[in-house]
Amino acid sequence: MSSDVDAAAVRAEHRYELLTWPEIVEAAAQEKVVVLPIGSVEQHGHHLPLDVDVKLASSICDAAGAQAPESMLVMPPVSYGYTHHVMDFPGTINVSPTTFTNLLIDIGTSVAYHGFRRIVMVNGHGSNHPLVEQAARQVILQTGALCLNISWWQLSAEYWNEEVRESGPGGCAHACELETSAYMHVDGDNVRRDRIKGALPDYLDLEGGLEWQKVDLTLGSGPTTIVEWTSAMTETGSFGAPELATDEKGRLVFEHTVARLVAMVAWFRTRPDLPRRDHHAEPPAFELPFGF
């Protein structure tokens, strides 16, 4: 290690990209957790900009990193995600699921290669979630580092539902009470407040829709999954109850989510590794060939 590295300065820095390579070596030695925000560039109705998903995920991660720089390094966000079903709305940018997942695997593998043993992927776009989970699994299986994945609203769902939200089932789905409130807090000047208009998705009007197909970020979804074109569900691109959004709700959920992320990273940083157990009678003759 180069003698000119200031360990205290590295401990105080929470942004991955602002470190030099010798400082990255020191940060890995300090066992910092690397946090990767992930979002999308996607339509969010008439009242929210295209950057909702990436801005909320990255803002939450950056605020958490600023509170606990000794525990984490926050990477520049992955701004583009899987949005094929939203392409009827101009402005949306889609990345194919294989390309997207492989990108995340490559980022996570690179971080693990440099000596970081704990990685967190914080997602901000609903349709990314299963792909982010698969990427996190592959990073673990391919590198031996632990990679945790979570969507930011999972950190605050119980609090939001019990203490803050006013909408019923389906009210927090997309450009909704939750996302609009959070964006009002993070970047209120860019909310087109005179254009806020949402509605429950059209499929809830179908027989059995509420029983089988409801979608809500924090109340959970119905037992079935039917991901149709977004334009088949909503005229405006917003489904939920954005009319109930307020700046104060956004502040409350943002601050709670940041605190929960700080607490989660602190736990994850010291979580022990569980040893792998191979139960073959004889060692396999070759390495597992399975990749993604």
Rank of each mutant, 00 (worst) to 15 (best):
Cys147Asp: 05
Cys147Glu: 02
Cys147Asn: 08
Cys147Leu: 09
Cys147Lys: 03
Cys147Met: 06
Leu148Thr: 05
Leu148Met: 11
Asn149Ile: 06
Ile150Tyr: 01
Ile150Trp: 01
Ile150Gly: 05
Trp152Ile: 03
Trp152Gln: 05
Trp153Phe: 05
Trp153Asn: 13
Trp153Asp: 06
Trp153Pro: 15
Gln154Met: 08
Gln154Glu: 03
Leu155Ser: 10
Leu155Asp: 01
Leu155Asn: 06
Leu155Gln: 08
Leu155Lys: 12
Ser156Glu: 07
Ser156Lys: 00
Ser156Ala: 15
Ala157Gln: 10
Ala157Asn: 12
Ala157Ile: 05
Glu158Asn: 07
Glu158Trp: 09
Glu158Met: 03
Tyr159Lys: 00
Tyr159Ser: 03
Tyr159Leu: 05
Tyr159Gly: 05
Tyr159Met: 08
Trp160Pro: 09
Trp160Asp: 14
Trp160Gly: 04
Asn161Val: 14
Asn161Asp: 15
Glu162Ala: 04
Glu163Phe: 09
Glu163Ile: 03
Glu163Leu: 02
Val164Gly: 02
Val164Gln: 05
Val164Asn: 04
Arg165Asp: 13
Arg165Gln: 15
Arg165Tyr: 06
Glu166Thr: 14
Glu166His: 12
Ser167Thr: 10
Ser167Arg: 00
Ser167Lys: 00
Gly168Met: 06
Gly168Phe: 05
Gly170Val: 07
Gly170Cys: 07
Gly170Phe: 02
Gly170Asn: 06
Gly171Thr: 06
Gly171Ala: 05
Gly171Tyr: 02
Gly171Arg: 00
Cys172Asp: 12
Ala173Trp: 00
Ala173Arg: 06
Ala173Val: 07
Ala173Cys: 09
His174Glu: 00
His174Phe: 00
His174Val: 12
Ala175Cys: 12
Ala175Trp: 00
Ala175Pro: 11
Ala175Ile: 12
Cys176Tyr: 01
Cys176Ile: 09
Cys176Ala: 12
Glu177Thr: 06
Glu177Arg: 02
Leu178Glu: 04
Leu178Pro: 11
Leu178His: 02
Glu179Asn: 11
Glu179Asp: 10
Glu179Gln: 13
Thr180Asp: 00
Thr180Pro: 12
Ser181Trp: 06
Ser181Phe: 09
Ser181His: 08
Ser181Glu: 11
Ala182Met: 13
Ala182Asn: 08
Ala182Val: 15
Ala182Asp: 04
Ala182Ser: 11
Ala182Phe: 00
Tyr183Gly: 13
Tyr183Ser: 11
Tyr183His: 10
Tyr183Glu: 12
